[in-house]
Design a protein around this nucleic acid. Structure first.
Length: 105
DNA sequence: TGGTTGACTAAGT
DNA sequence: CACTTAGCCAACC
């Protein structure tokens, strides 16, 4: 069995709190786990397919709503499809932050 | 130990 | 408005 780093586990826990219909940006998660936006993105990029079911990772986008994972290739298309499937408003590869941005508080 | 890289962001040119 | 720097942090070589 592989052990997730403590930071990775924190990120997972935080992402799990994102409700249906909401999205958050990397900086928000970073703030919750005590790290930075770039490190959060680095962790998510290291996720394997087996972890896709564990957390709503596709509800994490960049601050302006853009689906950053699109630069990774096919993975980005999957994220976009999942968001559309859940009824999110997406324009030009970006989520409508005015309607979907979620705040942890 | 130190340089490079990266699903970020803010600020500068 | 498009592109570049700089700051930030974790992993890899």
């Amino acid at each position: 069995m592989s052990q997730k780093s403590e930071l990775k586990q924190k990120v997972f826990d935080t992402v799990n709190k994102i409700p249906l219909g909401g999205v958050v940006y990397f900086g928000q998660i970073a703030s919750q786990v005590g790290s930075d936006a770039r490190t959060v993105g680095w962790i998510l990029s290291g996720m394997v397919v087996a972890e896709y079911d564990l957390i709503p990772w596709y509800r994490v986008v960049s601050k302006n709503g853009y689906i950053s994972s699109l630069k990774l290739g096919h993975k980005g298309l999957l994220q976009k499809q999942l968001l559309l499937k859940e009824g999110y408003i997406i324009i030009e590869d970006s989520v409508d932050m005015k309607k979907h941005l979620f705040n942890f508080d």
